[in-house]
Simulated scan of single mutants.
Amino acid sequence: MSLYKLISPKAFVELAKKETARRVIPIDSTWYMPNTGKNGKKEFMDIERIANAVYFDIDDIKDHNSQFPHMLPNLNTFNVKMSELGFLPSDILIVYDRIGNFSAPRCAWTLAVFGHQSVYLLNNFPAYKRQGFPLETSPRTTLSTLTPSHYESFQDLTSKDVVTYEELFKLVEAGDLQRKFNVFDARALPRFTGDAPEPRPGLASGHIPGSQPLPFTAVLNDGLFEDDPERALQKLQNYFSEAKCTFDNSKPTIAMCGTGVTGVIIKTALERAGIHNVRLYDGSWTEWALRADSKYVAKGRERQI
């Protein structure tokens, strides 16, 4: 079961109107791949946003001591950053990105991993715009208009929801990964097979031996998650059949991607389909490609070791 819930644009607008006991705060977490030349923070400040939104920067709210992008911060760092942005533990947080369920799931998951109780993922911002709901278009000078707070969470679900490199490497080295886990990679198929380069210069393409491709685009409908669990499951089953992937519901599942962002998209889709015990490999392919010996980098669709 996902740590956060989906909410439609209409339901979000209705919630914001009727909720009086707690604040309902939109969070813009737009992030783009580094090879796009686009800047989500600049778009938030200069172009448009949902009224009273706060910008959550996944390039800042992370483990800055790690060489790998977007690794989860520790609980203290999370609390400090949430305080700087002015959040309260009682807030209802509605997360979105301008692309439409690209980086927003990563943000929503981060909030929930560190114990924020009321987290929703807007399904999705382009739909919100198409349906004519209001936007702010005047330039912003700050990421948040909220008064700085004293945000304090005592919950950290990292050990439950995250797979580490060390754990994964032991499984691959012993030849046990495929036997014990379903492992799905959200990157585009040519990157998975090693036929296309990674967007980060110098990083090898390929995949972890024993993993299977599940491109994040395969689990979305024009950027939208299925809101019905049965349809979500059917969508996954159709993909597995067409792509000749195997899935064993008796095994736990690991989701990954390039840097731990789109991996949360497929994690969310799997959980919405009723699949339990899905964890994220936070370091994902970037960490694996930089740390593992080249013999543990597989190409094509066949298991290499």
Rank of each mutant, 00 (worst) to 15 (best):
D227T: 15
L189W: 07
C245Y: 07
I92L: 07
R301I: 15
Q67M: 10
T77D: 12
E167D: 13
Q67V: 06
L121R: 03
N39T: 01
F216Y: 15
M71A: 00
P134A: 07
S284C: 10
F114S: 03
F184Q: 09
S144W: 14
N76D: 15
P201W: 01
S138W: 02
A188H: 04
N221I: 11
E271V: 02
W288M: 09
P190T: 05
F154H: 12
W109M: 01
I61P: 09
N101M: 06
E287T: 06
Q237H: 12
N39W: 06
R231E: 14
T20L: 13
I208N: 03
T30P: 12
Y32G: 01
G263P: 13
A298P: 05
P199C: 05
Y165T: 00
K41G: 08
V261T: 14
D282T: 02
G100K: 04
P26T: 04
Q131T: 00
S90T: 15
Q67Y: 03
A16G: 07
L6Q: 11
S90H: 08
T262P: 13
F44K: 06
I25E: 12
R191M: 12
K251H: 07
F216E: 03
G100H: 07
L168S: 01
K38V: 03
A243H: 07
G274S: 04
Y4R: 08
E19P: 08
T164F: 02
A255C: 15
E230Y: 09
Q178T: 00
I50D: 06
D91M: 09
I254W: 08
W285K: 06
Y296P: 05
G300F: 06
V183W: 04
S241R: 14
W285V: 05
S83I: 05
L203K: 11
D176P: 00
S211T: 06
F154E: 08
K41I: 10
H116G: 02
D156C: 07
E167H: 10
R303L: 07
Y239M: 09
E198D: 13
S250E: 14
K251W: 10
G260P: 10
I7H: 12
R179E: 14
N238K: 13
Y128C: 01
A11F: 06
E271S: 08
N249A: 15
G175T: 02
P197N: 11
R130K: 15
P105Q: 12
I266Q: 09
K41M: 15
L224G: 00
H116E: 10
Y4C: 10
A218C: 05
L233Y: 14
T268A: 13
L72R: 01
Y281L: 02
I305K: 11
F154G: 00
